[in-house]
Computed example of a mutant assay.
Amino acid sequence: MDALRYLQKIGGVARTRQLLAAGYSRADLARLSSQGARQPRRGVFMLGEHKPELAAALRHNAHVSCASAAPHYGLWLRKTPDLHHLACNHGHGLGFVRHRTNRFDPHPTLPIAAVEDVVLHAMACLEPPASTAIATSAIRLHGVPLELLKDQLRGDRSRPVLDALNELDLSAESIVEVDAQHLFRTHGIAFNSQVAIPGIGRVDFLIEDFLIVEVDGFAYHSSRKSLRNDLARNNASMVNGFLVLRYPPEVIWFEPERVLAEIRAVLSLPRDAPPRFVTQ
């Protein structure tokens, strides 16, 4: 792989020493200028198409972190931040959200904080459910230990953060499930999540042991087979005495009042026959 393709692969911006450490010669770097790369400052090569958060990190001698680093690790994030979130140990520079402490070794080749620091910064910076979605996905996808996060954030000033960590439901399989959990919890709706019901299968949420709430992902009904399976599950739910509400992600995110109103309306319905399944 030549130096230009490598530079494209790592986000379109890199320091000279990173390119040299990757095995490229000074002659290779000299050719980058003729291939469209520019040097906005000494020791930095940048392509026209580059990751702006990486460029900001190099410009400010920092590491990308928090919400800005979440996509690099595949962490669950619904909204890209308006400002770059950077971790640095100095007070210089403006126009970005500053995170002061890096506790772990950063990414080995890119100016990105360790995934553990990304979560710790997000927990202290963002409000739930954005923070808890990042934490849940880091634990599920990268094996970040929950106890490690708690140990790093102990102290009186971190009590709300620790409370949020203690409330994490690691059964959540997507960001929209985390958002639904937060919506239910903050509005006093008790639920069980990822419940396996005989004859029906695993459901996203079970409320008061008779109302099933399913949060459909983006791949919902992506095939005829998935449509048949979901119709069969709905029918099995009704046969077994359950009621079902289903919501796509955009309704959970943009119409939460509708979701709450419909759930409460169903819960207020008279119940003549209880379902045949009771959660433990």
Results as ranks from 00 to 15, higher is better:
Met1Pro: 08
Arg5Ser: 14
Leu7Arg: 03
Gly12Arg: 03
Thr16Lys: 12
Thr16Met: 04
Arg17Gly: 06
Ala21Cys: 08
Tyr24Gln: 01
Ser25Met: 08
Arg26Ile: 11
Asp28Met: 04
Ala30Pro: 05
Leu32Ile: 09
Ser33Cys: 12
Gln39Thr: 15
Arg42Met: 10
Arg42Ile: 08
Val44Gln: 00
Leu47Tyr: 06
Gly48Ser: 15
Glu49Thr: 14
His50Asn: 12
Ala55Phe: 13
Ala55Asp: 04
Leu58His: 14
Arg59Val: 10
His60Gly: 07
His63Gln: 10
His63Ser: 06
Val64Met: 01
Ala67Ile: 03
Ser68Val: 02
Pro71Thr: 11
Gly74Val: 11
Leu77Lys: 03
Leu77Asp: 01
Arg78Lys: 15
Lys79Trp: 11
Pro81Asp: 00
Pro81Arg: 04
Asp82Lys: 15
Ala87His: 04
Cys88Arg: 15
Val97Arg: 13
Arg98Gln: 10
Arg98Phe: 01
Asn102His: 11
His107Pro: 04
His107Ala: 05
Ile112Arg: 05
Ala113Gln: 02
Val115Arg: 02
Val115Asp: 00
Val115Pro: 05
His121Asn: 09
Glu127Tyr: 03
Ala130Cys: 11
Ser131His: 01
Ser131Ile: 00
Thr132Cys: 10
Thr132Asn: 03
Ala133Ile: 05
Ala133Met: 03
Ile134Thr: 07
Ala135Thr: 07
Thr136Asp: 09
Thr136Arg: 02
Leu141Ile: 11
Val144Asp: 05
Val144Trp: 01
Leu146Arg: 15
Glu147Asp: 14
Glu147Ser: 13
Lys150Phe: 01
Asp151Trp: 07
Leu153Trp: 04
Arg154Val: 14
Asp156Leu: 13
Arg159Tyr: 09
Val161Thr: 13
Val161Ile: 14
Asp163His: 10
Asp163Gly: 10
Leu165Asn: 00
Leu165Gln: 01
Glu167Lys: 11
Leu168Glu: 03
Leu170Asp: 10
His182Ile: 05
Gly188Ala: 09
Ala190Lys: 13
Gln194Phe: 09
Ile197Ser: 01
Pro198Lys: 07
Ile200Met: 07
Phe205Gly: 05
Ile207Gly: 07
Glu208Ser: 13
Glu208Cys: 06
Asp209Tyr: 06
Ile212Cys: 02
Val215Met: 15
Tyr220Gln: 10
Tyr220Phe: 15
His221Phe: 08
Ser222Gln: 15
Asn235Phe: 07
Val239Trp: 05
Asn240Ser: 13
Gly241Ser: 08
Phe242Met: 03
Leu243Trp: 10
Val244Lys: 03
Leu245Ser: 08
Leu245Gln: 08
Tyr247Leu: 10
Tyr247Trp: 11
Glu250Tyr: 15
Glu250Cys: 11
Ile252Ser: 02
Pro256Gln: 09
Arg264Cys: 04
Val266Arg: 11
Val266Gln: 09
Val266Asn: 01
Ser268Gly: 13
Ser268Pro: 00
Ala273Arg: 15
Phe277Asn: 00
Phe277Arg: 01
Thr279Trp: 10
